[in-house]
Every structure is written in C-alpha cells, then in structure tokens.
Design a protein around this nucleic acid. Sequence first.
DNA 1: GCGTTCACG
DNA 2: GACGTACGTGAACGCT
Length: 937
Amino acid sequence: MSAVSESATASLRHLVLIDGSGFIFRAFHGLPPMSRSDGTPVNAVYGFTTMLLKLLNDSQADHIAVIFDSSRKTFRTDLYPEYKAHRPPPPEELVPQFPLVREAVRAFDVACIEMEGFEADDLIAAYARAATLQGAKVTIVSSDKDLMQLVGAQVSMFDPMKNRTIGPDEVFEKFGVGPDRVVDVQALCGDAADNVPGVPGIGIKTAAQLIGEYGDLETLLARAGEIKQPKRRQTLLDNAAMARLSRDLVKLRDDMDLPEPVSALAVRALVPERLAAFLAEQGFRSLINRLDLKAPPRPPVASTPVVATATEAAPAPAGFSRDQYDLVLDLDTLDRWIAAAIEAGIIGFDTETDSLDSMRARLVGVSLAVAPGRACYIPVIHNPPAAQGSLDFGDAPAESAGPKPIPADQSLARLAPLLADPSVLKVGHNIKYDMQVLASLGVPVTPIDDTMLLSYVLDGASHGHGLDELAQLHLGHTNISFAEVCGTGKSQITFDRVPLEKARDYAAEDADVTLRLHQFLKPRLLAEKMVEVYETLERPLIPVIVAMERAGLKVDRAFLQALSEDFGRRLADLEAEVIALNGGEAFNLASPQQLGKVLFETLNLPGGKKTKTGQWATGADILEDLAPLHPLPARLLDWRQLAKLKSTYTDALVAQINPATGRVHTSFSLAATTTGRLSSSDPNLQNIPIRTEEGRKIRRAFIAEPGFCLISADYSQIELRLVAHVAGIEGLRTAFAEGRDIHAITASQVFGVPLEAVDSSLRRRAKAINFGIIYGISPFGLAAQLSIPQSEAKAYIEAYFGRYPEIRAFMEQTKEEARTHGFVRTPFGRKVFTPGIKDKNGAARAFAERAAINGPIQGGAADIIKRAMVRLPAALVEAGLAARLLLQVHDELVLEAPEAEAEATIAVVRRVMEGAACLSVPLLVEAAAAASWDEAH
DNA sequence: GCGTTCACG
DNA sequence: GACGTACGTGAACGCT
C-alpha cells in the first residue's frame, strides 16, 4: 500500500485541507453531550468522525490532510502577547477529546499535520501555496473568516456544516473587499475574537470603505492626513503602528518549511481493521454497522480515476445497496414479505400518499423493511403519466401498458393483519401521519415505535428530526430526495405518477433507513435515561393525537363569513380615516416600512426607534406611546387588530374546513418545541383569540354538533405550581395548599401589606413578578411589562427573592445544571437542551440562562398534561362516556360530549387531569361545558 | 427566505 | 460602558 503515495504524487490535482482545530470546537458545541462507556466525553470526536467520513466519501480529492493548532505559543504571541490571550481554557469535557480526534484522523489513514510555533491557519496557507504552485486545485474545509484571505482562482473554501462553498463573491460579501485585500481590512477593524486590536472605532464597514478608496493599508496610512473626518483622521494617524501590528497578526505565514512534503498527503487506501478498532473503542457502533467494515468505504485511489467520475451520482456508501429492494406486484410475493415481517418481529414501515395533508391524502403505496437493506414497496394506486403526444379524453388516466399493482382491497386485506399484529413492532418515522392515512381506510396500526420521536426526546433541538437529516447524521447516508422523484414547483407530480422502479427505490429506502435509525436510536433511550419519557409520555400519545386530529372541530361557517364581512367593512372605513389623517396621501397600512415613514418622517412624530435592521419600529407598544400625540396611531392599531383577525382567523378558518367532514382538522406536532410542548398548525388552533372582545367573537364560531356540548378544562396556574414544586418555595406551597388567590398572597408577602390591603394595582404587579419568575426574570423585562423604571423592577425582584429565598438557589442550580450537561431535566425526566449556555456573548448566554430556568417549568407542565391525555381516553371508556378529546392548548383540554353526559364527563376529566402528577402542591382544574368554546372557557 | 408584527399559553 | 433581553409557539404580510 505504501507504493500508492509515490505513484499518486505525480497526479496532484486537487488538495483538500481540513481545519481540524476549528472543527473540534464546532462539533463540540453543535452536538448534544455523548460519552463513551468509560465516561470519556466523545461528542466532538463523533461529530468530527462523521464529518471526515462524509468528506472522504464525497470529495474527489487525490490529496488530503487535517491540520491542527499545535500549542498556544506561536510567532504571533511573540509579536503581541495579548494575541488570543483572553480566550478561556477549553471546556473540561473537550480536553480529553483533542488527542482522540487526532487518533481518528490516523485511523482513517489521513495525513495529520501540526507544527510548533504556527497555527493551523498558517500551515493551511503554506500547503495551499505549495499545491497551487504545482497547478492543483485547493479546497479549504473551514468556516474561519481568517482563512478567507487565501481564496482565489485555484483556492476555495467549503463549510461542511452549512454545506456552503465560499468563493471570492462570498468573501466580498463578508469583508466588502476581494480576498487579496482582506488582510488590510482586518488590520483596520481588528478581531475581538482573537484579540487583534485594529484601529479603535473602525469597524468592518468603515475599513472596507477606506481600503476601497485608498487601495491598501500602506497607502492609506501614508495618505491618512487627507481624510476629511477629523476624528477618523486623528485615530488613524495615532494608531498606524497598531494597524501594522494587526496586519502582521492576521496575515498568514506560508513560508515555513513544510513538516511533510505535499506528496505525503496523497490519499491512501483505508485499513478497515484499523478504523474498526478505533470506532469500537469509542463505542461508535452505528458507524461500524454503517460502514460494513468488511468493505472499505472508498476504493484505493490508485485504481480510481480522480476526475472522470465527477458527473456520476454519488455511489451509495457501503452497506446501502438497493439490490435487495423489491417491487411487490403479486400476492405470492406480498405473502412472502409478510411472512418475513412476522418472522422478524420488527419492521420499518412507511406509506406514500398524494398529499401532505393526512386528512385529504389517498394511500398510494406501502413500504416495509424487514432487515437493514431488505425492503420492499407495495404500490396501491399507480397512475403513470400518459405517454407524450397521446390525447387524454376523459377523467380516467390513460391505460398504461406497464405492470399494475395488486388491487388495493386485496393488498390491504393482507397488510391489515400484519399492521395490527401484536407480535410485530411497526417502526415509522412520524408514524402519526401513516396511522392517520390508514385509519381513514379503517386499518389500525399497533404496536408502534417512532424514530422521529426517539430522536426528539434524545437530542431535542440540537438538530432537526427529518428522516433525510437523521440518515445523513447517524448513517452517513444521503436519501433519494423527494424532489428527485417528484420534482418541484409547478411541474411537481404526485407519488402515484412516479414510475414504479423509481417509486420502489425511494419508498423502500425510507422504510430501510427508518429501521436502521431505530437500531441506532432505541438503545440510546436506556443509556441516556430517557426510557420513561418516551414510553409513558411520547409513544402512547401518538394514537391519542391521531384520534384528536381525525375528530376535528366543528366551526360555524356562516357565522365566520358574516364576521369576515363585518371586519372587511370596518377595515375599509378605518383605512379611509387613516389615509385622511395622513393628508390624503395613500399608503399600504400593512407595510411597517411605509407606516414608519408616515409616522416619523411625514408626520414627524417624536420617539421613533429603529429595529436591528434599521427600519422604523412600529410595534403595538410604540403605537400606544404615540396615541396621545396624534389620532393616526390609535386608528392604525384598530386596523391592525381587525386585519389580523380577518386574514389569520375568519378567512383562513373557513378555507380550512374539510369538505368531507365539515370540520377543521389541525395538525399537532409532537417534535417541534424545545420544552416538550406540542405545537399546532394548518390551522394553528392553539392561538385562537381570547384576550379582546373582538377576538373572542372568533371563539364563538367553534361549536359542538347538535345534541353535544364543548367542554373546556384548564389547569389553574400550572406553571406557577411547578415553580413552587421544583424550587421548593414554602410560602407559595402553603398558599396553593390552602387554595388561596396566589397573586394576592404574593403581593401581600412581597410588599409586606396585609392581605386585605392588597388592591388591584398591587396584585397586578405581583402577578407580573410571578410570571417573570417563570420566564427567568430580568429587571429589564419586568420593567417593560409594568412600564416602570428598571431600578424599581430591580427592587421588586430583590424583595421577591428576600421573601422566597428558595427561588434564588433554584435559579443558580438550574443554570449550573445547564452548564454541566448542556440540558436541564423536568421533574419527569425530559431533557430540555440549552444551547448557548456557555456562549462568550453575554446577551446570548443570559438568553440561554433564562431559557434554562423556564425549561423545567414549561416542560414539566407539558409532561403533566401529556400524562393526562394518555390516561383520559381509557378513563372515559371505563366510565361509559362517549366524550372525545378534540384539542390541547398547553394547559387546557377541549372535549366534545353528549349534552346529557356533560357533568359526568367533567368529573372524569377533572379527576384524570388533577391526578396526572403528584407534586408537593395540589393540581387544580377548572372546567365548564357550553355550546361554544367561548362560553365553555 | 427573512424580518416584523401579533395571535395564543 | 454598551449591548440587548422577559419563556415557548405559528401565520400573514411586505420586501428582496
């Protein structure tokens, strides 16, 4: 094998240089904590390994190297001792991973380069120069802006995290100058991250402008006296030495002796045993399986033409052959697959349909995977596009001469028993959707597992949970994209029109990947102590949600239409008034930009603030402040309210009524939020107005069927009860136990007045503080909420902490927990991840700290209502009641029940909800029944 | 596709 | 000394 490098030397055409040090940090911060069985943290090693694997698979490079920083002391620290001096030491969990990452590089038999006294960036510069001199192309894999000075005709950068190539245009976008002038700009603006001083008061914009005008740093410094702005001229004259020093710091050195010749970077054949041993040591079993290490993931370069294959589709990584994907077109074959499924006891399972809306979708096909790589697609309807040039005279699709699916009634009759077979676990990805589609056909699916939910409970918001993304992340596999199969935009076709062979590859792959992901994710539940959350809160919720979505909610169409017309008329009147108030000058009331000009430029009203993009801010709070000064802002607020209600609610809801059921069916997402809450969309029924009189009218449109009523049951103060429980606040606990008015009690205790003396204003302030606690209080936020000075808000908070000292300890402990683990846990064990908790930006860190404090509270409340939802259907059945769940709105459940059973249903609902958790404070549920949601709430 | 605004808990 | 903030969502709209 050693002969390879010699023979490849002559063919240096494309060199890939990987910024190893940059990557370790990004992988570390971008991935959830992971550790080896011996406790060594390995998340950065894992991220680095998968990244390297992907690069090796995808790139056409013939030479490759990973470059590392060697030590902190470099020629730059000699030049300027402050350089990077303020950098904190790397996090404790990262330190043991540095040597492991270098081991990873060696395990892949890739060159690993570092050199005392130089940073990785300098070595990259030197190798890039050496390679370009030999006429080769160079790709620098990094997103570090300090490397952008190297970009040029032969050199480009690639950011693998964002999958983005950085060329001269992107550099110009960043620095406002071409790559050859980047150093001059950086010399002026400095770099806070590296402690490069630059010239005080000059940022990237000014620097780019100056360099654009004068050409380069030396010319600028020589002619600094010509600068018009006196202050800028003086600082430049005063700081010329600083600018030159900064330039020397940012300019990369490429003149050192290379520690290895370029030829030593030639791509070498992989030694499977070596890689397998390394991966096994780290406990990366999924990677071993994925690579199927008997076969190397890439052939030896010596036998591979380097450039010629570039146009070919990327070969599937080893272990991902589609050879054993089967297209099932006859009953015998189907029966064999069903037998194999029963034999396996666990299958990957997926459906293909003709719509994303599960309530309207028709089943087009089903795919099953019985083992990794062994999967089939069973088409149910197939309408290939008519041949070109043929005329289509009727509704029926043109007869196709090709193979036909098994008639739908026959295939479904065979599949239904398998899907209901208690001894066969059906693993889906977002299986809620597949269960919906099959439920419409009367086919139940049980027992189930869901890889999307597994990923969600394990890794939270640290990455997305789409099948394609997880396949890439955990299996290193690129799925066939839906767009590849069905196209995009106007020419997109539905899945039933996809040619069968292509449909088979796509659909069978999804089932295959789902099963493989399950093998990887399910064992992590136990290792990461998430079994309870998944098994008691998430998985059993799926069938409950399926039933809720299918039930839908009846809305009064005529009422909403009448409301819409009323709103429409009033909007027209308001618009005319506003235009008149603007001196008859028409503008678009819905455009914040145009409104800002009207208010602060035409009418010249005071107190204008800009948003972070430099637009005039025109939010409701700003308009309210302006209301006493001019009649326009108040009219506009009225207009905004009605416009919102009309477009988002009256009109949209009418359009969302399902023609088949006459009801609206929301879609609940179980894997969308960082805290464990559900979310609702299409339409969002979790934000139906309630706070204003006009808004409440919309709620009146949500009604029950004749003979039925709507029941709304909501937890009273559930989040504050969670605070009292998790923080162990004795004062609050007692108040809750005694069933007192919690905000009044708080006011009395914090402000030190007798309960009888608490007036509405004092209670309002106490209520705001209580809410503030839930959100991770800050003086700024509380001050804004109460329109009081920050100093006063600060005093309130101090008083609160004084009266309830446990809260301070809780907040400190929670932040510490977040810093140590990267997540906090709810009382029920759910992880709420807290990215940014160690951010060097103070604002970002404070944000993460508040989110960390909110996590156990909001997340704990979400856990409790989930538990109630899981238990409720069975409790209703057991009580002989016909009520069904329709909606969940975070602390509220909405049901539809026969009028005659209203009281009995309320009793069961209250019992289940109040008994869903046993905290150190009681749970209290308020419930009522009525003809509409508005009256029931 | 992003930013702003606003509906909810 | 300035920064930029209450926590969690989704939808509509304007603008590019």
